[in-house]
Simulated assay, not measured.
Amino acid sequence: MEPKWLEWAKQLQSIAQAGLTYSKDVYDLERFELIRNISVEMLSLHTDVSKTVIKDLFANETGYATPKVDVRSVVFKDNKILMVRENTDGDWSLPGGWGDIGLTPSEVAIKEVKEESGFDVKAIKLIGVLDMRCHPHPPSPYHIYKMFILCELIGGQAKEGIETSAVEFFAENELPPLSIARNTETQINLAFKHLHNPQESVYFD
């Protein structure tokens, strides 16, 4: 579970963002801007990130605050799972990324596999929707829902993408160092549950 200070900071940011969007009174707008500044101070105090960077991070968000969506693609071949090595941290993750405006979740899953691994896939079914706060990921300033979509390999060949430096399939008991910001070992285990039991229920929360 995420630390309480981070939960409070994100709640304050959410309140401030909604207030700055919908309020008309100049004094209320000042109060909501103050609330946003408090949330920025909290995040800056507990991290190595400057207040300017954090405020810029929040400033690109307008309207009613809602969770961001991260889509991860689960692809198997010969009982091994497809993973890509991330350039940002050198560790491994399921192909995936932020949901794109104008694309369905399955279209995002297909696109991310192609861009990050070179393979062509067909989306089969949703296997999980996870709230990032409820799993052992590093703290994030955003509230994130992670969607895991099982895909069938239909073509292509391994090829690194702009954001990836290697593409490989791994057995369940031979997982590489994981990019924990993107996926955890328990989430990979969940994916293998659906390989072993196609009737496995969709996991949520």
Rank of each mutant, 00 (worst) to 15 (best):
P141I: 06
D120R: 10
P176S: 10
G118M: 06
I127N: 01
M1D: 11
E168T: 00
K111R: 10
P176T: 04
S14Y: 02
R36P: 07
W5P: 13
T104M: 10
Q17A: 02
F204K: 15
Y203H: 10
S117F: 12
Y64V: 14
M83C: 04
C134F: 11
E116Q: 15
M42Y: 01
D28W: 12
L103W: 12
K68R: 11
L103T: 00
K146A: 09
K10G: 06
K80D: 06
I124D: 12
G97L: 01
S106H: 07
T186Y: 05
G128Y: 04
C134R: 13
Y27F: 14
I38F: 14
P138N: 10
E160K: 15
K68D: 11
P136W: 09
I15G: 08
L126Q: 08
S50N: 05
L29T: 02
L150D: 05
I162P: 03
D89H: 13
P139R: 06
L126R: 02
E2L: 13
K146P: 01
I101S: 05
K10P: 08
E30V: 12
N87L: 15
E115A: 13
I162L: 14
D78F: 07
P105C: 08
V129C: 00
S165V: 13
I127L: 08
I180M: 11
K51I: 03
K146H: 07
T62G: 01
Y27T: 14
K10R: 15
E163S: 15
D120I: 02
L175P: 00
L153C: 09
F170S: 08
L178Y: 11
V202W: 03
C134G: 14
G90Y: 06
Q157G: 10
R31E: 12
I81R: 07
P198F: 08
V113L: 10
I149R: 04
A109W: 04
N189S: 04
P3W: 01
A158E: 13
I162H: 15
L12E: 01
N79E: 15
F76E: 03
L45P: 04
E7N: 04
V69F: 11
N183T: 15
M132T: 09
P198R: 04
S23F: 03
V40E: 04
A65E: 04
G19R: 05
W8P: 00
L190R: 01
T62V: 12
R36Y: 03
G118P: 05
F76Y: 07
L43W: 06
D100F: 13
S106D: 12
